[in-house]
Design a protein around this nucleic acid. Structure first.
Lengths: 146, 146
DNA sequence: CGTGAACAGTTCAATTCTTGAACTAAAAAG
DNA sequence: CTTTTTAGTTCAAGAATTGAACTGTTCACG
């Protein structure tokens, strides 16, 4: 394949990705904005998935500075959705976990996200979804390995 | 398909999308941050693609408030990358176009983005990319029609 | 054992992006 | 000609982000 071909592929990817992200993002925000921002939702999602994690870990996964995570976590802790628990063996480390309320707020928001996104997915056949997801996950895996 | 199946599909989509967006976003930011933010790059991309557009149009495409666009455009105009030209027939309308400098800054940034993203795409076969893009574009098209 | 390096996390100032309400100015509708 | 709609801006407030400086804590090794 020549350079022009790759450029046109990138253009198509950029355009589709832009539309999907902006549209889904806006619809999700519309549903949850009285309680959480989209970034706060993603933060709760990750903590919930791994049960407990650190600021440094979140910074790596979100590809942002640690201080950005401190700010988000502080706001979530003020709302009572997250607990900060200091490791007793290594007192530098702070473990982040969901509170009871954080758990239920996450579940509420997750349901909202499901209601927004799933109608669009249902247009595709099971085979199409599997193909699409496999390729998307392959790309994600490559990006994670470095 | 039952609800559980859809939930697991959504989880996989959320995870892959999250990783790809954050990783690509961070690598692109790293390359262009001395000159443009990622949002500013996307703004130049759209204006360049359509040659000339309005604040209202950008707000719809970006799914944000018009005042958010005014802010971004003001910053790009201050840097000398965008011109605001008032329509002579309907004097409410302001057309946004790239300046010479905006054009060349866009081309520079676009090249950087290409250099960041294309190595990852080259791992896939032409057939895989075509399949993936077709499905992604189908999703984008559905999200655009409403 | 003691000291300097490395690490985990926070604070702070500055910038960007975002919303929503209030506003200006212009065009369209009646 | 008055009212309504439309395009865009301004403003205040809040969220996210960076990068530098800082606090505490642990670790390495001479």
């Amino acid at each position: 394949m020549d350079v022009g071909k790759w450029q046109s592929i990138l253009e198509r990817y950029e355009a589709a990705s832009f539309t999907v992200n902006k549209r889904f993002g806006a619809q999700i925000r519309e549903q949850i904005q009285d309680v959480l921002t989209n970034d706060q939702y993603l933060t709760l999602t990750h903590i919930r998935r791994v049960a407990s994690c650190t600021t440094t870990e979140l910074a790596e996964i979100f590809c942002v500075n640690k201080s950005a995570i401190t700010a988000i976590v502080t706001r979530l802790a003020e709302k009572g959705y997250i607990d900060r628990i200091r490791d007793q063996r290594d007192r530098r480390i702070v473990y982040l976990t969901l509170t009871e309320e954080g758990q239920s707020v996450f579940e509420w928001a997750d349901k909202k996200v499901f209601e927004v996104v799933s109608p669009y997915l249902k247009v595709f056949s099971e085979q199409e979804i599997e193909t699409f997801l496999t390729l998307f996950e392959k790309l994600a895996a490559i990006l994670n390995d470095e």
